[in-house]
Structures are given as C-alpha cells and as structure tokens.
Amino acid sequence: MRDCPELGYQLLIFDWDGTLVDSIGRIVMAMHLAADACELPRCTDEQVRGIIGLGLPEAIRSLYPHLDDVDLAKRLRQSYSDNYLMLEAEPSALFRGVAEGLASFRAQGYRLAVATGKGRHGLQRVLADRGWLDYFDYSRCADETASKPDPLMLHEILAQSGVAANRALMVGDSSFDLLMAQRAGMDCVAVGYGAQPLQALRKCQPTLAIECFTELHAWLDGRASNQSVGVVLHDR
C-alpha cells in the first residue's frame, strides 16, 4: 500500500467515460446505432450525452420512458453494447494530461479509484487494453451496485478503503457524479470537457470546476500547500 499524503485528500475517485477517457462521441453513436437496429427513433446527441454516467438500464429508461416491451429493451441494451464494442476496437484516447496526472498522483501517495456507469466486464476490458488492471486501488461499476446518483458505490469504496468521506474527492463530468458525491458527504470536482457543459455542472455547486485535467493537479498541490500554513481555500 502506498503512503497517503499527510495533508488533504487521501483518495481520488474518478468517473471513467468523459472524465479520464474521450469516449463520449462513441457512446452517442453506439446508442444511435442501437436505436436504428431496434427500429426506435433516435434521441438527439444532447439527450444521449445527458444520460452518460447512469447505468445502462437506467440510461435506456431515461431515454425511452415509454418502452414497456421488456424484450425490446433487452435487445436495445445488447445492441448498444455490441455497437460500443465495435466502435472501441481501437480504445478511446485519454484526455490531455490524464496519463501524466494519474502517474503523478500515484507517486505522491494518493490512492486512486474508479466509480463508473460501465459494467464490470466493460471496465475490465478497457483497463486490460491499457495495461491498467492493477493501476487503481478500488473500483465500482453500475452493474454490481446502485447506479449514480445513488451514493452507494462511493460508500462501498470508502468502506473498502477505510478512508473517511472528508478525505476523499470525486472527479466527474456529469451531474450524476456530483450529486452522488454530495450525497456521500464528499467533495467533488466538475470537469467541463466531457458529457455535460461546465455551465450546467456549476449548478451542482462542485468544490472545484475545471476545463482541463491538468488543472486538478495544480489545485491539489496548492490546496495542500495552503493547508500546511492554515489557509482554507474556497473554489466554488
């Protein structure tokens, strides 16, 4: 186990799609192709982006609230999964600064976790593609716990890690991430380059709002430095 930083947060928890990985366009296209395959009307790009972060069953119920045919809903989920896998034949790129930032956080002693709307199989596949199966200390997926914005997956990560909520930070690109963190009693960072624009995310009153992943590293370093001399930062 790596040593934790003496000051500030001990555990950094990241959403995956739209926060670490630039996969939003592929998610949108996979949902459109699934709708076509099931002879359902396509939702708008904006509507699909608005459900990213939810578990797949919850996302489909939100996009197609009047879809009462259980078999058709199941076909839609499977078609989405198949199309996303096809589109991910070449893995989506990490956002700028993510690889370097995560490596630096690990070197500084932070513990790292993923809390994602992906299923476990999907997360394991993308981690394996990057050689990251052992990179994160903890992870929770939507198909093994409650979907965001329910805070259960964060409660489970905290319980597994032994870290208190006030020593953990959630980083995400959707309102579901931010609301989940707040319901878990946890600080949160909104990133404005993913599924939802920063203007909308600010309504959730995140602890910090950033437009580039590299800003997170600078903020954490500055926060630790100021805490060491008794200064409290307010970034909302």
Rank of each mutant, 00 (worst) to 15 (best):
G162S: 12
L158V: 09
S174V: 03
K118F: 13
A164R: 11
S174P: 12
G172H: 11
L169C: 11
S139C: 00
D173Y: 06
L152C: 07
H121Y: 05
C141H: 07
A128H: 15
E156S: 09
L152I: 11
A165L: 09
R125E: 04
E156M: 13
S174W: 03
A164K: 12
A165Q: 14
S174Y: 03
I157N: 08
Q124T: 03
D143V: 03
G131E: 10
G131Y: 14
I157V: 12
Q124V: 00
A168S: 14
D129V: 01
C141F: 07
G119C: 09
R120M: 12
V126G: 08
Y135G: 14
D134F: 06
V171L: 06
A164L: 05
L133I: 00
D137S: 13
L127M: 15
D137Q: 06
L123P: 08
L123C: 04
H121L: 02
T145H: 06
D129I: 00
R120A: 15
A142S: 15
M153R: 02
Y135H: 14
Q124R: 10
Q124H: 12
V163S: 09
G119P: 05
A146Y: 06
V171Y: 00
M153I: 13
Y135S: 14
R140K: 11
D137F: 05
W132R: 02
M170H: 08
G119A: 11
V163E: 13
R167W: 04
A146C: 12
L158T: 09
D134W: 06
D134L: 02
E144T: 15
G122H: 05
K118Q: 12
P151S: 00
A165R: 14
K148M: 03
S161H: 00
A142C: 11
L169F: 09
Q124N: 11
G131M: 10
L123S: 04
A146S: 08
K118T: 11
L133C: 13
S147H: 11
C141N: 09
G119T: 12
A165G: 09
F136P: 02
S147G: 12
T145V: 14
